[in-house]
Write a protein that binds this DNA or RNA. Structure first.
Length: 401
DNA sequence: ATAATTTGACCGAC
DNA sequence: GTCGGTCAAATTAT
C-alpha cells in the first residue's frame, strides 16, 4: 500500500478538533503524538474517554483472532469501545440531541443487536440508516464545515461531486471463458459489472479520479483502440488476503479528459463486515454473494450490503495522509502496446491503510463516529446524491475474452 | 522487507 | 491477426 500524502484527493471535514493521523490513533506510537493544543480543546474526561476507547480498540485488535471465535466477547468489546467513543463524541458536540444522541442511539442499538453482516444490511435498509444519513447531512450543512473532495475544495457547499453514477450494468454478462489449458487465466469476470463516470478533481491533480472507498492495486494498463487515453486495470488490494475478486477499470473519456469512466467488476468479499472485520474470511462466501459493486450498491441506494456498511464505517477522513494507493508515478508518458506509465489510468481508491493490508473497521467506527458530520470523498456523496445517479446498462461489451 | 507500480509478454476471444 | 485483459518480472516506493 502506498502511503502518499495526497491530501488533495481526500475528502474531509474540518473538525472542531482533529487527530492528525487518526487512522493510526490506535497505534500507541502515533496516538501519543497528539498535539497537546488540540487535546486541550477537550476536557479531561473526554480525552480519557477517547484514550480509553483507543486502548480498548488496541486490545481488541491484538485479540481479534481469538475474539473471532467468541462473538459475545467480541460484541461486548465493540460495545464498550463504541460507548466510549460515542460518549466522548457527545461531549465534543455538547450533547446536541439532534446529532450525537440520535447517532448514539442508532449505534448502540445496532451494537446491542449484535449486528452481523446481514443485520448491518438490515439496519442500513432501515430508517435508522436514513436517520443517520439525515443527521450527518444536517450536520454537514449546519456546521458549514469545510469539505474537500476529490482534490477540490468545495467551499462548504457540500454539494460536491463525488462519483456520478452513470450506468449500471446488469451483470449477467457473459460467457465466462472456460479457461483452457496453459496459464489458468480468468477472463470475463464473474459477478456484477457496473460502470460509472467520475469527474476528475476540479483542482489539483485532475489525473486522479475520486476515490470510491476501496483500495485498489493496479495490475495493468493498456492502450485501447479508439481511446485517446490508456485504460488502467485495478484489482482489490485484498485480493489475496480475502480472495476478493473485485476489479475495476478506469479510463478517461475521449471527449472529456476530466471525466473518468470506471467499470467495476466482481464483488468485494473483503472488508465487508463491521463486526467481523479483519478476520481473514475463510472463503469468498464469507459474505453475501449478491452484492454489487460499490458503485452499484450505492447508486441504487437500496442496498444492502456490506459495501455500504463498510463504506459508511470506513470513510477515510484523514486530510493529511490521503491514503490513496494511487501513485504519482502514474503521471507520465504512455505508450502503446502492453502497458504504459500514463497517468490517465486513474488513481486508486481506498479506505485506509495501516501499513498492512488488513483494515480495521474498529478504527473506522471511530472515524465514523468522530466524523459523523463528515464525508469521504465519494462515499458520502454517493449516499447523499445517489438519487441523482443514473445508471444504464451495458451489455456485454468488453467483449473480447 | 514488503508492498505497489510499471510494462512487455502472454493468452483468449473475435 | 487484432484487441483487450491479465500475468509477472523488474522496478520503485514505503
Amino acid at each position: 500500500m502506498v502511503h502518499q500524502h495526497r491530501s488533495l484527493t481526500k475528502a474531509y471535514i474540518q473538525l472542531p478538533f482533529k487527530f492528525p493521523h487518526h487512522h493510526n490513533m490506535f497505534k500507541s506510537k502515533t496516538s501519543q503524538k497528539e498535539p497537546k493544543q488540540q487535546l486541550e480543546a477537550m476536557d479531561e474526561t473526554t480525552v480519557s474517554l477517547i484514550l480509553h476507547a483507543c486502548k480498548l480498540a488496541r486490545d481488541l485488535e491484538s485479540n481479534l483472532p481469538n475474539l473471532a471465535n467468541q462473538p459475545n466477547l467480541l460484541s461486548n468489546s465493540l460495545d464498550e469501545i463504541t460507548r466510549n467513543f460515542v460518549t466522548a463524541r457527545e461531549r465534543v458536540y455538547g450533547q446536541d440531541p439532534s446529532t450525537s444522541s440520535s447517532l448514539h442511539n442508532m449505534l448502540t442499538l445496532a451494537h446491542q443487536q449484535q449486528i452481523g453482516t446481514s443485520q448491518v444490511q438490515e439496519w442500513l435498509r432501515s430508517s435508522y440508516a436514513q436517520q443517520a444519513m439525515d443527521i450527518i447531512q444536517t450536520q454537514l450543512v449546519a456546521d458549514q464545515k469545510e469539505v474537500k473532495i476529490g482534490g477540490c475544495i468545495d467551499d462548504g457547499d457540500a454539494e460536491v461531486k463525488g462519483l456520478q453514477a452513470m450506468d449500471i450494468v446488469s451483470a449477467s454478462d457473459t460467457n465466462i471463458a472456460s479457461s483452457s489449458s496453459q496459464r489458468p487465466r480468468r477472463r470475463k469476470d464473474e459477478g456484477l459489472i457496473s460502470k460509472i463516470t467520475v469527474p476528475a478533481p476540479r483542482i489539483g491533480n485532475t489525473e486522479i479520479p475520486p476515490e470510491d472507498g476501496f483500495t485498489w492495486r493496479k495490475y495493468g494498463q493498456k492502450e485501447i483502440m479508439g481511446s485517446r487515453f490508456p485504460r488502467g486495470y485495478y484489482r482489490c488490494t485484498h485480493q489475496k488476503l480475502y480472495n476478493c475478486p473485485a476489479k475495476k477499470q478506469v479510463q478517461r473519456l475521449n471527449n472529456d479528459p476530466l471525466t473518468f469512466e470506471v467499470m467495476y467488476r466482481g464483488e468485494h468479499t473483503c472488508h465487508m463486515s463491521a463486526t467481523a472485520p479483519s478476520v481473514p474470511p475463510p472463503s469468498a462466501e464469507h459474505h453475501n454473494a449478491t452484492q454489487g459493486s460499490l458503485a452499484q450498491t450505492l447508486a441504487t441506494t437500496t442496498t444492502t450490503d456490506p459495501p455500504t456498511a463498510s463504506l459508511w464505517l470506513s470513510m477515510d477522513f484523514n486530510p493529511i495522509r490521503g491514503g490513496s494507493g494511487s501513485s504519482s508515478r502514474m503521471i507520465g508518458g504512455d505508450r502503446g502496446g502492453g502497458g504504459g506509465g500514463s497517468g490517465d489510468g486513474a488513481g486508486t481508491s481506498t479506505t485506509t491503510r495501516y501499513g498492512k493490508e488488513v483494515d480495521f473497521p474498529v478504527v473506522d467506527w471511530a472515524d465514523a463516529m468522530f466524523n459523523s458530520g463528515s464525508s469521504s470523498s465519494n462515499s458520502m456523496d454517493f449516499i447523499f446524491h445517489s438519487a441523482e445517479n443514473k445508471w444504464e446498462s451495458e451489455d456485454k461489451k468488453n467483449g473480447g475474452q
